[in-house]
Design a binder for these strands. Sequence first.
RNA 1: GAGCCCGUAGCUCAGCCGGUAGAGCACGUGACUUUUAAUCAUGGGGUCGUGGGUUCGAGUCCCACCGGGCUCACCA
Length: 542
Amino acid sequence: MPTTAAAALSDLAATARAWPFEEAKKLVARVEKRGGGTVLFETGYGPSGLPHIGTFGEVARTTMVRHAFRVLTEDRIPTRLLCFSDDMDGLRKVPDNVPNREMLAGHLGKPLTEVPDPFGEHASFGAHNNARLRSFLDTFGFEYEFASATEYYRSGRFDQTLLKVLAAYDEVMAIMLPSLRAERQASYSPFLPISPTTGAVLQVPLVERKVEAGTVVYRDPDTGVLVEVPVTGGHCKLQWKPDWAMRWAALGVDYEMAGKDLIDSVKLSARICSALGAPPPDGFNYELFLDENGEKISKSKGNGLTIDDWLAYASPESLSLFMFQKPRSGKKLFFDVIPRNVDDYYTFLAKYHEESPAQRLENPVWHIHTGTPPTLDLPVSFALLLNLASASNADDRAVLWGFLKRQDAALSPENHPELDRLVGYAIRYFHDRVAPTKRFRVPEETERQALAALDAALAALPAGADAEAIQAAVYEVGRAVFPDTAKPGPDGRPGVSLAWFATLYQLLLGQERGPRFGSFAAIYGVPETRALIATALARTDG
RNA sequence: GAGCCCGUAGCUCAGCCGGUAGAGCACGUGACUUUUAAUCAUGGGGUCGUGGGUUCGAGUCCCACCGGGCUCACCA
């Protein structure tokens, strides 16, 4: 029998089926086989771009595996998560979204850490992007260690393994060449010398390799002279796939995941890693994030949803849920999936606290909150808030809160900050996504008269008129313009046709349906409602 | 050419270690509100892509096939 809470949890984790546990179990077997030591998780970045939704996904998922591993092993085996920035990569092209582009154009080909920061804030463009990456990760509270390729190369930390690559050159080439086209095969070299004269990362064929001296010789593309540089100390960088393999071998990386588009690359790098005498890391290939049409989301295409989009309309936790769910299946990432993930998150959260310990380990919120999900109950769903925001034309929190308080007077932003947070998201969602799609009809002549009459009736109401009084005024006007004799009112006078209310919502809110009008006007404000009427009256054809 | 994912209600999807099919939305009906949103209750609707196999029993495991789609094969 387990004697501690940690031991009990570990026992449960041993049979847990959630995917982070499956991954963690692979790692336990790996560590047992090699007899202990720290387990190193890695995620890597090409720092020429800014952090994006895939960056978040990779760190979030890796963190889930790491946490599962720690629980499984009762934290007896140290773990680290290294976020490795390939900032020594050469600047290939000038990004569109930065200032000082002509200045950058003069530094093409140089390592990013040698390119001046176009924003003028950091020591280099690479440093700038690294800072962006770190503050991005810090926003979410990830626990990680940052690593800079430039620093690692220059410090000599990679030297020993770089020399191994030089020694195993033929083997590395034998692995790489079959994967390349004929014309690329002719020029390919795993080593990319950094030009001592221009500072550029050179993609040149090697003329000679001197394993004993630890150097390579190439012909300078500008001058044609032979140049000899050490492969160590940051004088050479490696091509991507050998670089990945060298890093795994040098640092002893145990786990790294990658997208499905990198399957072949991972295989090649793993073979190179083995050739360097180190076991390649475990990990798995997650499915790509797809747009609405099922195509890969790419920054250059600009399709799909960005992380800023998501975080503008929903919480990081809901995004974590998205990342947790079925990482091996294709996932469409577009606007419509946001509300569902928000509501699913709260549903899982509510369920969590009623579940058995074993069930909890299968619950996404356990993984999202590294074992300690908060206790929260949400009186209404996010979907409802979105409906309400749309129906009530909510452009500030007070309007939405007005409707919420009608439902439950005890609710307030003060005693339910989480709900208030969602209210904010709902309003933004409405404002950005729903409001622009609204189609306001131009009023016809009789409708103009009715609106004018309604405006006058509202103006005549005493200040602070309640919902019932406003509703009565609406009826009075409607009775004159849109009578419905077949449907008498409670006092026997003619009723009011549905058309009147439909007209109001079409003209004032740009939609077919809406909330009870008196209640709406009372909460929305009589002057504000009159402003809506004025706007509607101002619309004309053409 | 290689690899991967998917095929379950009208739509989007969930179905955990195999045990008589579920949710949301949509739709129907009803309650409440003198109309409308919301809310609540309730109902209909599926030969689980096809064909085999394992099994007392298969949406679930195995094999084959069909269909839809993506990714890689220049660079990262």
